[in-house]
Design a protein around this nucleic acid. Structure first.
Lengths: 242, 242
DNA sequence: TCATACTATTTGTATAGACATATCATCGCC
DNA sequence: GGCGATGATATGTCTATACAAATAGTATGA
């Protein structure tokens, strides 16, 4: 079956080799566990140098399609459960992508100390100074999301001096925390009375809740809860072979 | 500032270089748009060959931390909205990860033709033969999810001969479609009367709905809707710098 | 027989060199 | 001034080679 591998002549050689080996894997012709030709075999097959073949195979391994082991060679990886890449953009970007005008309203801004439930979910020492921001986002004048931020002032002290009346906390944080480590938890919940009123919904309407915890340099930096009307917002993502 | 870059002596050289350049980026010391030392500068700084430096930089570019351009050199990338990797495992795996016994019940199995609304969301020709499977998943004897599958028999003809009374359609499909292209849409919705009864919930309870479309070799293969009680299930994911 | 040493295979890493390609800046030239 | 040719720079790709590390199988020896 290795004979049927063929280059398509388009693009760099290492890409062609990667595609040639990738094709029978994603088509199912090579089932998980099947042996993939060794680098030497591919060198002979395609007339490429080992470094070029190695780069193609390494890319496939990085993408999780094959598993490489010394001496035994490479095999097609077992298909794991999906790992979908969900794009969680800023609310402004989401609204403006739908050709609606974005606006934002600050509902509350208060200092607090970690002691109540926020300390528990945040995993920080009790007494840590926090800044709590509550705000509402509008798409074309209609409320589209509620956000509740808990910023760890020990990790992000600059937040103390920021009024957050013009810049939404989410955007401000994104600029201050480039490439944070973040964890997301997505659930559904019924809107309570206050929440429903703020979102202009009937009480009990299903909403999408996205909890996000972010760290900066290993220190918990922010805990954000975002609430969307369930029917008005969708989290989308995709997984695709390379 | 390039002087402060230092290798830590641990692991392969290209990894050390990658970490050395990565550190000031994720710490924020190098803001987006800042120029990253060129390959030649890094060669001189670390005494490494260009291929080794190139591999480190290329990895950073693949991870989206820097943007590389010919002649102008590399710069720190603008922090985009997060692209979180959500793990959407099989329901069995999720249940068994919680130390509960998994079971499964087939509710309906019927053949259909794409003509009604399913053709529209599926983007297939009307009249295409489909197999519709409805099932319920249990965790420790209590219902934990509902699933509704529409399998395109033109793309996956083997499904016709499968009774799906023992193997859940999701697992069967995962084995038949290795590395499919898939799209996900996650929303929240209020449980209707029938849905609530099947999930043992009060009507109107918020539920998490995950729609998944999968393709095989570019052909729509399956459309799956999964419903979870909103409080009983969470979609989790994370994004982390490399 | 069992344990150990050796060997062959395969991948992992690193180097030096070469040429290709995109692009910015500059220098003439009209 | 505007236009085009030219050169410089940085990345992109590819090769040939070398040695290292992991490991499965084989040979060796007590």
């Amino acid at each position: 079956m290795t004979d049927s591998l063929a280059l398509d002549g388009r693009g760099p050689l290492h890409e062609q080799i990667r595609r040639a080996v990738c094709a029978p894997i994603i088509s199912g012709a090579w089932p998980p566990g099947r042996r993939v030709p060794s680098e030497h075999e591919l060198m002979a097959l395609f007339g490429a140098s080992r470094m070029t073949v190695n780069r193609a195979m390494r890319t496939l391994a990085d993408d999780g399609l094959i598993v490489r082991r010394r001496r035994t060679g490479s095999v097609v990886a077992a298909a794991t459960g999906d790992r979908a890449v969900m794009s969680i953009g800023s609310i402004r970007a989401t609204v403006e992508a739908g050709d609606q005008t974005y606006s934002y309203e600050s509902l509350a801004r208060r200092h607090a100390r970690a002691s109540d439930d926020s300390a528990g979910r945040f995993k920080i020492a009790a007494g840590t100074p926090l800044l709590n921001l509550s705000c509402r986002h509008f798409a074309g004048g209609r409320p589209t999301a509620l956000e509740d931020h808990w910023i760890n002032l020990a990790a992000v002290p600059e937040a103390s001096d920021e009024p957050f009346d013009k810049t939404p906390p989410g955007e401000w944080l994104a600029a201050r925390l480039p490439w944070p480590k973040s964890q997301y938890v997505v659930t559904a919940l019924n809107a309570g009375a206050a929440m429903a009123k703020l979102l202009d919904l009937a009480p009990g309407t299903a909403c999408l809740k996205i909890d996000r915890r972010s760290w900066r340099n290993g220190v918990p930096a922010a805990f954000v809860t975002t609430l969307y009307p369930g029917t008005g917002h969708a989290l989308t993502g995709e997984v695709a072979p390379p």
